[in-house]
Design a protein around this nucleic acid. Structure first.
Length: 522
RNA sequence: GUCUUCGUAGCUCAGGAGGUAGAGCAAUUGACUCUUAAUCAAUGGGUCCAGGGUUCGAAUCCCUGCGAGGACACCA
């Protein structure tokens, strides 16, 4: 490994410290009695509480003025200036601790300090250091970001480095922590909301022999001992419904799902969905629940239902607008397509700019027309309900409208926020719908669903009428934190490996090539 | 997958009509006992993403590849 000049210098300092008898990576805990935020918030009103503090953090700035120095220490909650004076740190003739240690600390080193809080002549709340301890020597130089009067200089913003080395991003751009804290608050709010209603949080398999519950291409893997192909789940819907069959009346799961498809600022190969199933309810009931839940989230995160997202001020206050899909299309195009036949729909689709091909049936055409003419224009949260039958193979047929299903999506900021329906619980109809999907698969649709015999068997035992919901947690977080890219709400978004690594897993390769471990047929 | 922009010091960026590689911050050494983008002086630091081509000569022009951002397509 080639070391840069600055890395060599830091390793030399490490040796110098060791030679002075200092352990650069001590094992003992360091007592922390206060955070930077507590000091800044409370020192002026109750200074007596801060006469003997112990605090730890990372050195972010150094201003050394000979025999005194000012450093800025960053902890989990912010920064605080510390002030050290040579003759106090070294009361005797021996000035080593100040000259050879304290002054030689680097930006990025982690130290603990004990002392008292005071206000400098320039009016900054600071800690007067009486003693300090090196807690971790840093061997790489940090990007240096400077700031004055709210203006940031030399901001560390290269997206590649920020995403690959998120730890650096968090150190240097601590304000991004807010987004991730909000994400966790969002999840906690939803969890509390559902727990209060008595629904049970459950866990279902990620490794599945059959993937189902959505139209998507899966990741494929292999279990050696079982000698079988497994797929990483694309949804957890079919497992959660089995639990409703089993007698739970409300189950939910925050589910990491995996889809082997294109990436964009709205798509990561792994993403988080929350799916909820409640027995004896229908999609209208679920609409009301979604409204209330998302409004609760907005209030929990922002104390208001109005949230600035890009150029738009979005208001999550209930009730949200509701349109059937036909109404929405009529609203935005002025054309009522509800009575059109397939040919008329094709012509209209072409007119509004849909790339039409012959494999598209009526339902698909309607869906495409909606996507093309309406979705991007729906900025305020809006429910679109009553979807065409053929694009919704797990959804119950509408109680009164032909060729329509009881399905809705909430659209917000021009993007789908959730997808929900009255679940199909007629096992004969469900088998027929799966078979239609198989036909699509034979015709080359790589995202068609596969037939799940065990799921059908479960339905044949009987599932109560059930309302189901899937809500994208990453997407919701993007809106709630005004983040333009999904990569901003994932700590570690998927990236290409930095360097080419050996493609084949060596262990697997060895197994395959070793005759003793190959499949035995007795 | 397609189109497009980009890749230069630890970081942020200049240079780019081809002629020895630049700045600020960071680093090193020195000065400085209330600084805060600290200041002042001196010094060191480069596979100009990689490979090939054109040329007397390429960071610069051309081609290919790799990586990233954005847009489109698919999807949540």
């Amino acid at each position: 490994m080639e070391l840069s000049e600055q890395e060599i210098i830091r390793r030399k300092k490490l040796e110098d410290f060791i030679n002075l008898g200092i352990n650069p990576y001590p094992a003992e805990l360091y007592e922390v009695t206060v955070t930077s935020k507590e000091i800044r918030d409370n020192f002026k009103t109750s200074p007596e509480k801060f006469q003997d503090v112990s605090i730890a953090g990372r050195i972010m700035k150094q201003r050394i003025m000979g025999a005194v120095s000012f450093y800025e220490l960053q902890d989990a909650h912010g920064t605080i200036q510390i002030y050290a004076k040579r003759d106090e740190i070294c009361p005797t003739e021996d000035k080593t601790a100040y000259n050879q240690v304290f002054k030689k600390l680097d930006i990025g080193d982690i130290i603990g300090v004990k002392g008292f809080v005071f206000i400098t002549q320039m009016g900054e709340i600071s800690i007067h250091v009486k003693e300090f301890t090196l807690l971790c020597k840093s061997l790489r130089p940090l990007p240096i970001v400077k700031e004055k009067d709210g203006e940031v200089y030399d901001a560390f913003h290269d997206p590649e480095q920020r995403y690959r080395q998120r730890y650096l991003d968090l150190i240097v751009n601590p304000s991004i922590k807010e987004t991730f804290i909000k994400r966790t608050q969002l999840v906690n709010t939803i969890r509390n909301f559902l727990n209060e209603r008595g629904y049970l949080e459950v866990e279902t398999p990620i490794l599945q022999p059959l993937y189902g519950g959505a139209a998507a291409r899966p990741f494929k893997t292999f279990h050696n001992k079982l000698d079988t192909t497994l797929y990483l789940r694309i949804a957890n819907e079919l497992y959660l419904k089995r639990l409703i069959v089993g007698g739970f009346d409300g189950v939910y799961e925050f589910s990491k799902d995996f889809r082997n498809e294109g990436m964009s600022r709205f798509h990561n190969p792994e993403f988080t969905q929350m799916e909820l199933y409640v027995a004896y309810k229908d999609y209208e009931w679920m609409m009301n629940l979604v409204e209330e839940m998302v409004e609760t989230v907005a209030l929990a995160l922002h104390n208001t239902t109005k949230i600035q997202v890009g150029d738009n001020l979005i208001d999550f206050k209930r009730p949200w607008k509701r349109y059937t899909m036909y109404e929405a299309i009529e609203h935005f195009t002025g054309t009522d397509i509800s009575q059109m036949n397939e040919e008329e729909l094709k012509l209209f689709a072409k007119k509004v700019g849909v790339a039409v091909d012959n494999s598209m049936g009526k339902g698909k055409l309607i869906d495409e027309i909606f996507g093309e003419t309406c979705e991007a224009k729906l900025i305020q949260p809006t429910f679109i309900y009553d979807y065409p039958l053929e694009t919704s193979p797990l959804t119950k047929k509408h109680r009164s409208k032909p060729n329509i299903t009881e399905r809705f999506e909430a659209i917000c900021n021009g993007k789908e926020l959730c997808n929900a329906y009255s679940e199909l619980n007629d096992p004969i109809d469900q088998r027929r719908r799966f078979e239609e999907q198989l036909e699509l698969g034979k015709r080359g649709d790589t995202e068609s669903m596969v037939l799940d015999e065990d799921f059908l068997r479960a339905l044949e035992f009987g599932m109560p009428p059930t309302a189901g919901l899937g809500i994208g947690i990453d997407r919701l977080t993007m809106i709630m934190t005004n983040s333009p890219s999904i990569q901003d709400v994932l700590f570690f978004p998927q990236m290409r490996p930095e360097k080419k690594v050996e493609k084949e897993d060596t262990q697997d390769t060895q197994r395959k090539n070793n005759p003793l471990t190959q499949k035995r047929n007795f």
